[in-house]
């Protein structure tokens, strides 16, 4: 436990010490909110209004905000896992690997560190809610936090696994380009996943981010107050094999995903002869 705490504490300390990274972490999500929230909302809302016929009921900013929080979680979790490559490059990984800290503790410590950093960024975004004219229920924001942490753990686990097989920072950037971007765009984070070609829909359903985004939206958006047409238009009736998926099922799926990835990352540490 002490080992997990030490590894976690180190990454958190370094996150707050790195001024450039701290500042950069504020700017990117805000930029996305401006572009997607401000720039796209008019177009999206008029398109949705035509589709559903229920004009004015569809608030795109309300729809996209949880998506952008999820996207921030994804980016930050994966990028924070990059620290493991730095640790190898700068030799610190050796100090950890020759210590009595178990390999699974190293993986868990790293995962929790990246997930914590990601959640801090998510919470920073919450502070923008009043300025965006959004009215999420305060209780729903509190409820979504534990899920955000679980989701971030799963994504950090994925980052760790990538980091453990990639040797260089450049290689990592490439993986991010070919993996992270599609994971965001094909998840329903930024636009509803309706009327897609079948092959694309299959990818969406295989993408774990889809379920994370869906749960966050269902918790944060007051779905019951919306007309059924709007809920459908938002793509919130996620089905698999023609059956509606429930929130507990999705949470279970994310949790299993997180555990499996941490175990895989542990195995890769065991192989490492740093």
């Amino acid at each position: 436990m002490e080992g997990i705490y030490g590894i976690w504490l180190r990454d958190i300390t370094k996150f707050f010490r790195d001024k450039a990274r701290l500042f950069g972490s504020f700017t990117m999500p805000i930029l996305f909110l401006l572009i997607f929230g401000g720039g796209l909302s008019g177009t999206m809302e008029s398109m949705m209004g035509q589709m559903t016929g229920a004009d004015g009921d569809f608030n795109y900013v309300e729809f996209v905000f949880p998506g952008i929080v999820a996207m921030t979680l994804l980016m930050t979790s994966i990028f924070s896992s990059l620290s493991i490559i730095e640790d190898k490059d700068f030799g610190y990984m050796k100090e950890i690997l020759v210590s009595p800290v178990s390999r699974v503790s190293i993986a868990i410590g790293k995962m929790l560190g990246a997930a914590t950093v990601a959640c801090i960024q998510g919470i920073i975004l919450f502070m923008l809610i009043p300025f965006l004219g959004l009215t999420y229920d305060f209780v729903s924001l509190l409820l979504v936090l534990p899920f955000m942490f679980l989701f971030a753990c799963a994504l950090s686990g994925l980052g760790l696994l990538i980091a453990s097989v990639i040797r260089s920072t450049q290689g990592f950037q490439m993986i991010v380009q070919i993996l992270v971007m599609p994971m965001i765009f094909l998840s329903g984070a930024l636009f509803p996943i309706n009327n897609m070609p079948a092959w694309m829909h299959t990818i969406v359903m295989l993408n774990p981010v889809t379920y994370g985004v869906d749960v966050m939206k269902k918790i944060m958006i007051d779905v019951d107050s919306l007309s059924p047409e709007v809920v459908e238009a938002m793509g919130l009736n996620l089905e698999i094999f023609g059956r509606l998926i429930t929130i507990p099922e999705q949470i279970l799926f994310i949790a299993v995903f997180a555990v499996v990835l941490v175990l895989l990352a542990t195995v890769s540490f065991r192989r490492t002869n740093a």
Binding site: R10, K14, S99
Partner: peptide, 16 residues
């Protein structure tokens, strides 16, 4: 870990 202080490096070692 060069980004940390001498004390922090030693304290981490104590934890490990």
């Amino acid at each position: 870990d060069e980004k940390l202080t001498a004390y922090e490096n030693l304290m981490l070692h104590c934890r490990f």
